[in-house]
């Protein structure tokens, strides 16, 4: 029985539909992440006119070209500082960076650490597919150890980044990691990240069946997705240090950081342009700068494992 044919999709108002179908391979998770992001926007009632999407280079970098919003497809690695420039100049706009693990953590690694440290009020959606897809499947800073890529034909010698942990420690206000299989939780996590004031970061583990899966014992599209279903474990308030991903082992997904709101970098930059603030004493300015720093306390609690709900395997003890 055929499915009812439609010529419109419910998220079409957010999409440059004339550009569809998109460039991504069959079974690529990127469409799932974009779908979840647009649903989160819709749920929150975010105005697409006031939302700017900034991407870098790579498969994920092409995202900016599909959203019907002000959107920028920048240079490799520089989406974050480009977005920072927009947000600092126009704090009234919602600024979202949508890019890949290689773009954000290899060539752009320095920028994302500093953006988290500054707590600029942008949302970063980092799609982690373990690989450089656009260039044909080379080693990424997230490729699990031993994995086969076109530039690690004997198996990857390097340890991958724990991106979520790194962001939590660097100063992000909100950090979560989900996978494309956990589509509903991903959508909720993105809702939370988009509503969060400050630097919010969502890592989405997303399959690349074409350039990663088929070289690493995941024969088909479904196998690549099932990998996440098989190995992901959801934890409440996980320790950011436990975000390490090892090949064919369980890995943690969930919310790695959810700090209290504090003035963001853009708030502070604009505070500095107020005559009162400029003319007050240095002591008062110092007090204002320091009294709002809550991130470190939240981080200490998470790392010490205090106030943390029982984790898997600890329930019966």
């Amino acid at each position: 029985m055929p499915i009812i044919k439609a010529d419109k999709y419910p998220l079409d108002p957010y999409l440059r539909t004339e550009r569809l179908p998109h460039v991504w391979c069959p079974g690529c998770g990127l469409g799932i992440v974009l779908n979840a992001f647009l649903r989160a926007m819709q749920k929150l009632g975010m105005d697409p006119d006031k939302t700017v999407v900034v991407s870098g280079i790579g498969c994920t970098g092409r995202t900016a070209g599909y959203v019907k919003m002000d959107s920028f497809h920048t240079t490799h690695g520089r989406a974050i500082p480009f977005a920072l420039g927009i947000k600092a100049a126009r704090p009234d706009l919602n600024v979202v960076v949508f890019s890949g693990d290689g773009d954000l953590f290899s060539i752009g690694g320095n920028h994302i650490i500093h953006a988290a440290r500054r707590n600029i009020d942008i949302t970063v959606i980092a799609v982690n597919n373990f690989i450089y897809g656009m260039t044909g499947g080379q080693l990424a800073p997230t490729t699990p150890e031993t994995s086969i890529t076109t530039t690690s034909p004997y198996g990857n010698l390097e340890s991958p980044f724990n991106m979520a942990g790194l962001m939590a420690i660097a100063g992000a206000s909100y950090v979560a990691r989900w996978t494309t299989v956990h589509a509903r939780r991903l959508e909720k996590g993105l809702e939370k990240a988009l509503s969060k004031r400050g630097f919010s970061f969502v890592e989405v583990m997303s399959p690349c069946p074409t350039a990663f899966g088929r070289r690493n014992k995941m024969k088909g599209i479904i196998d690549s997705m099932m990998y996440y279903q098989k190995y992901a474990i959801i934890k409440d308030n996980p320790n950011p240090l436990d975000g390490v991903i090892k090949p064919n082992e369980k890995f943690v997904i969930g919310e790695f950081m959810d700090a209290e709101d504090e003035p963001t970098f853009d708030d502070k930059l604009w505070e500095l342009t107020k005559r009162d603030f400029l003319e007050t004493s240095q002591a008062d300015r110092a007090k204002w700068i320091l009294e709002h720093r809550r991130h470190l306390e939240t981080l200490a609690t998470l790392i010490a494992g205090e106030n943390i709900a029982p984790q898997e395997g600890e329930m019966d003890e």
Partner: peptide, 19 residues
């Protein structure tokens, strides 16, 4: 539910079927 499809966008990946 009623299921709908914008058929020319489908790339036949099979994820909807599997999940």
């Amino acid at each position: 539910g009623d299921v709908y499809i914008v058929e020319e966008r489908c790339k036949g990946c099979g994820l909807c079927i599997a999940f």
